[in-house]
Structure formats: structure tokens, C-alpha cells
Design a protein around this nucleic acid. Structure first.
Lengths: 265, 265
DNA sequence: AGGCATTACGCTGGACGTAAAAATT
DNA sequence: AATTTTTACGTCCAGCGTAATGCCT
């Protein structure tokens, strides 16, 4: 069968022009590359080169062979990458969540329940989570509404978080309509929360900040309202700030979790 | 780079089920095939097999690798075949002619003028000759009408060939209209002559015969008219038969020949 | 004179097969 | 008992590099 290493050298010769350069490139001697090209030519059974006394060039057939070589090599490398990726995938649990909080809850559990498994998680919009699940691209999907096979996983309630001297503190509770128009500090990677906020508060502007520590700094330093929830962050919320519950139905979310049945084989 | 011989053995293992069978198939020892699979697995960097004490099986990743192996192998073999075919094509002159006579004239000349070249010739209809020429699929095209770059090559005139006692012998010359309705013996591989006859003599039936000697036998044994031309066959025509010239313009054909410019490189 | 392709030749490491072990049917 | 996989080990030759040749610019 054809030797892909020799094919690689053939392609290198097409690119570099002389056997000496190829030898240098591959850290082998010139006789070695000469022999390799002779061997390749012998395998094809047809001349690939025009040879002068101290000059060797590709002929037209040789150039065709180079084209095929390039294709074969890239496909061979692609095949190896795909096999490796498949193996990797066999040992990873891919989680797609519509929000960060369920991941804080789920990931530690997964790590202990499935030792030796990689866990790959991503936060994205509802439709992305859903299509990834339907296309079989993830093993666990977390959505803010039930789908076939899903079980309730946890609840989360949204709060507005404002400085103590903020005008909104006069309210004991709020609705999205109340706070529409205020500008908010917002984090990235919030999944469906992000689009929910923009949808419910079309008149508001959101100052988005990716870096967690920078975000915290901004919250402390500014008087802009932000959001918190009753999962995790509420108990150790920001000092000097007050959390006001939102009463809209959309602010009370039950997350549903579906997981693929364990593949046996 | 990945070893296609090992890939071949991997595919064979997928097909045969045991390493022993593969060893037998490839006429090598079992330790050799064991090592090959270990080496392949090591190259991929991921497990391809599930191993028991005296049992080895492909795992799911391995089966994927086999799929890729099959594809790679067939593509590699296809590449070699294409390169060889291309080389073959480099050393052959492909001739497409609309009629047999020009080939009798041309092929001997080509053989002597282009020593070391294969000559591949085919007789086909005008439109096939033309499209093959336009698509660059032939080096020489011979047609009964001039096209761009073509030169007149030879002339051929059609005769009706009838037994001496045939009713048509009373004519010194004929037209297609005169003989329309008579049934004819006809050979195959006549190119455009065939379709010309059927077009000009729609009421006639043609008894087609491929084998030359059988055709000659039929001409001698029957009283059915047939055709001859002034190229070659007329001088040593059939004894006991008379050749009557056809006066239609279509019966006087000038063949035009185009050839690709010699490719230099 | 320097760069290039190729041949000649000696050496070595990798690949092969034999033998053997261990386990399963 | 027969089959299968794998390890151990000795052998051998395919492929490597060095040296040298011949040629061209």
C-alpha cells in the first residue's frame, strides 16, 4: 500500500522545488529522499519526474499525483482527528444550560457521580439548548420549561439589587414594568436571563461586564441597580445593597433537566 | 504519518473478527498482526479495542476508525488508478471518427509518425465526435463537414452494390430516392453512414451484421443489395456484384480532420 | 566553487517469525 | 484438545547516513 510519509515528502518537493530542501525540511539525508521518490514512482508504476543529470522536476503526471497526495494527506489527518475527537466525546458529558445557576448545582454532582468523565458545559439561549438536545449534541440539557423526558431540577427567583439609598427601595416588591427604563449592570453568560431582561425591559440599557471581579467592583462603586437571585448569591449578597423581589411569573423559574440514557456497549 | 497497510489489516480484522484470521489472510504471523494493531492504536492515541485475556474486539471508537480506514483505502487506491490512467492518456492518441474509412487511412500513418504512442480509436455519430472534441476528450476528430481548425482529409463516395441479375442493374446511377424501400445488408460500426442511410431511406429495412466474415458470407449468399465505397473495398469488390454510383450530394463525402496542437511542457 | 541528484557501501534498529505462556471454549 | 492473544527473544534485512561521483550554473 502507498506510503503516506513518502506522499508527504512528494508534496514537500512540489512546494520546495529541490530534493535537498526536502531533505533539510525533514531532517534526513538527500540519498534518503532520492530513494523515497524512486520508491514512490515505482509504486505508481509510471514516471512522475523528468530527470536531468543534476536536476529533477515533476512532470504533468507527477503534478497530478501531488494533487492527490495533498487530498489524501489532509483526509488522513482529518480522520485521525475525528477518531480522537470521538474518543474524547465518549469520555465527556456535554451539558447545555439556559442559565448559570443550574450548572453550579449540577457540575459538582456530575464530577463525583461520574468519576473519570470530563464535563463540558455551556450556557446559551433556550433555543440553542433545545436544538443541541434534539440533535443529540449534548448529554444533559437544562431549560426553564418542561420538555419530553425532563424532570424539575431546581427553582430560582429573580431579585432587583439596589443601593440602600436608591429610589426603588421604597417598594417592597417590584415588577418588570416598574423597573423598565432603569439602567442596569449585567453580567455576561446569563443564558436566557439576558434575553428575558431585554425583552421585559425594552426601555432599559444594560452595562454588560464579563469579568466577575470587575463586575463586583462596579456594583460596589456605582449606584446602578443589578440583579440577584435566591440561589447562592443572595445569602452573601452585596453589603449596602437591598434585594427586592420581582413578582412577575417570569421571575420565578423552575429549571427542568433532561439527560440521555446511559449508553451501554 | 498513518500506515495504510496497518489500516488495511484493521479493516480485515473488522471483517474477519479475529487476529488469527487476519494473520492467515495476510500470510503473516499472529504476533505481527498483534503488534500492528497496537502500533495503530498508539498512533491514534486512543483505545480502539476492548481486550480480554484471549479475546480482542473493536470498541465504538475502533469501529469509527474502521469506517475512516475503508474510506481512506479506497481513495488511496483510486488515486493511484487515476494517476496511472493519466499517464496512460499521456501516451495515447485518442481518435474519434464519424466513419471507418478515414481510420483505415489515418491509423497506419499515426503509428509510424508517433512511435511509442498508443492509438485509441472509436467510430461514432457526428454529434458524439463533435462533443468529444469540444470537451477535449480526443486528440483527433474526423467529421464529414468542416469545423474550426479542421482540414480536408480525404473523400469517399458511396455506391450501391447489387448482384449482376438484380433489377437495379438497369440503372447506370442511382439516388437514395430510387433505392428507398429496398432492404439492405448493413455492417455495424459505420458511424454517420448508418444514420445517413436510415434518414435517406426511411422505408428500407437494414439487416445489421457485426461480424465481417459473416457479413461477407451473407453478401455472397444472398441477393440483397449492400453498400460499398470507392475507398479500399471498391477495387477488390465482391465478384458477381456490380457497384452503381449514388449521385446525391450526401453520397459524396469529404472528411475533415482536426487535431490538438502537440502539448509541449 | 558551490549546489544538486544519484550511486556505492557499511551499519543499525526495527520488524519479522519461532517459541512459549496463559486463558477461553 | 484446540483456538486465541500476547510476551520474550533471536535473527535479519530494509532503510538510514556517510562518502564519493558527476553534472550544472
Amino acid at each position: 500500500m502507498i506510503d503516506l510519509d513518502e506522499m508527504k515528502q512528494l508534496v514537500a518537493f512540489a512546494d520546495l522545488g529541490t530534493l535537498s530542501k526536502v531533505a533539510e525540511e525533514f531532517h534526513i539525508s538527500t540519498p534518503s529522499i532520492t530513494r523515497a521518490m524512486q520508491h514512490l514512482e515505482q509504486y505508481f508504476g509510471v514516471p512522475l519526474f523528468t530527470r536531468s543529470k543534476n536536476k529533477i522536476e515533476l512532470n504533468e503526471t507527477g503534478r497530478l499525483a501531488v494533487d492527490h497526495a495533498r487530498k489524501l494527506l489532509s483526509e488522513a489527518e482529518e480522520a485521525v482527528l475525528q477518531v480522537r475527537a470521538f474518543d474524547q466525546r465518549q469520555h465527556t458529558i456535554v451539558v447545555k444550560s439556559c442559565a448559570p445557576a443550574p450548572l453550579w448545582e449540577l457540575l459538582p454532582k456530575l464530577s463525583t457521580q461520574k468519576p473519570g468523565m470530563m464535563v463540558s458545559s455551556a450556557i446559551c439561549q433556550n433555543d440553542e439548548v433545545l436544538s443541541a438536545w434534539q440533535d443529540g449534541l449534548c448529554d444533559v440539557a437544562i431549560l426553564p420549561f418542561p420538555i419530553d423526558g425532563a424532570k424539575p431540577f431546581m427553582q430560582e427567583n429573580l431579585f432587583v439589587c439596589v443601593p440602600e439609598d436608591h429610589e426603588l427601595t421604597k417598594h417592597k416588591s417590584l415588577t418588570f414594568a416598574d423597573i423598565n427604563g432603569f439602567n442596569f449592570l449585567l453580567r455576561t453568560e446569563l443564558g436566557f436571563w439576558d434575553s428575558l431582561c431585554r425583552e421585559k425591559m425594552p426601555s432599559s440599557r444594560f452595562l454588560v461586564q464579563t469579568d466577575v471581579s470587575v463586575f463586583d467592583e462596579l456594583v460596589r462603586a456605582s449606584s446602578l441597580p443589578c440583579f440577584t437571585t435566591d440561589y447562592g448569591q443572595l445569602q452573601d449578597g452585596y453589603p449596602d445593597r437591598i434585594n427586592i423581589p420581582l413578582t412577575d411569573n417570569e421571575a420565578h423559574v423552575t429549571f427542568y433537566l433532561v439527560r440521555k440514557p446511559n449508553k451501554r456497549r
